[in-house]
């Protein structure tokens, strides 16, 4: 991040690419859940408990997974319990990979969101804090008071190995790489 232009070139955006290697389900564990908003916390715990100790305690893994599942339950499946959320996942000490699929219509406003995020980051890098007021949160007609699209901003930061939708945009694959311990010698 030597200067602002390189910073901009590092902007993460949501991509659509069904053929991304992140959608490769080989060797992944699998669980499916009804779209019950009350149980999101529980479903998240079920998934996270297979992660090794070193990655689940020291970071936001659980919170991030919970946000993605929340999106699928709420925006994808409209909290209809008969609709299922399917999750494929795999963890080890250096990575977390997750594919979350819902039965909804797909993330229609993906391009709008990317555009919004691009502008927001541009304003941030210019340190234009007045302009930023208009870009605090992303809202659509379906948004309720609890939505700010902010979870997605954080998700893009967190899932540093990519955050990719399938063509139908009802499944998202993501990868987090964990830095290997920095203090060890040799």
């Amino acid at each position: 991040m030597a200067n602002d232009t390189t910073y901009l070139s590092e902007i993460h955006e949501i991509r659509v690419d069904e053929n991304s290697p992140l959608f490769d389900k080989t060797g992944l564990l699998y669980k499916e859940f009804p779209s019950d908003y009350r149980q999101i916390r529980y479903f998240t715990l079920l998934i996270v408990q297979s992660a090794p100790l070193e990655i689940k305690e020291i970071n936001l893994l659980e919170q991030q997974i919970s946000e993605v599942i929340k999106n699928a339950v709420k925006h994808g499946n409209q909290c209809k319990p008969e609709k299922k959320v399917r999750v494929w996942y795999s963890f080890d000490s250096s990575h977390a990979q997750l594919i979350v699929q819902d039965e909804g219509e797909g993330f229609k406003d993906l391009e709008k969101w990317n555009e919004f995020n691009r502008k927001r980051l541009e304003i941030l890098s210019k340190q234009d804090y007045e302009g930023l007021a208009d870009y605090v949160s992303f809202r659509t007609q379906k948004s309720d008071d609890n939505d700010g699209g902010n979870a997605l901003f954080a998700a893009l930061e967190y899932w540093n190995g990519g955050f990719v939708y399938n063509n139908k945009r009802n499944a998202v694959a993501m990868l987090k790489k964990f830095p290997q311990k920095k203090h060890a010698i040799g």
Binding site: L53, E57, I58, K181, H183, A184, I185
Partner: peptide, 23 residues
């Protein structure tokens, strides 16, 4: 730096052993 680094490694090991102990 070697001292600092070994200290951090120690802290990490201590934290991890705490987690493992709890497990």
């Amino acid at each position: 730096t070697l001292s600092v680094s070994s200290f951090f490694s120690y802290l990490e090991a201590r934290e991890r052993s705490g987690l493992e102990q709890s497990a």
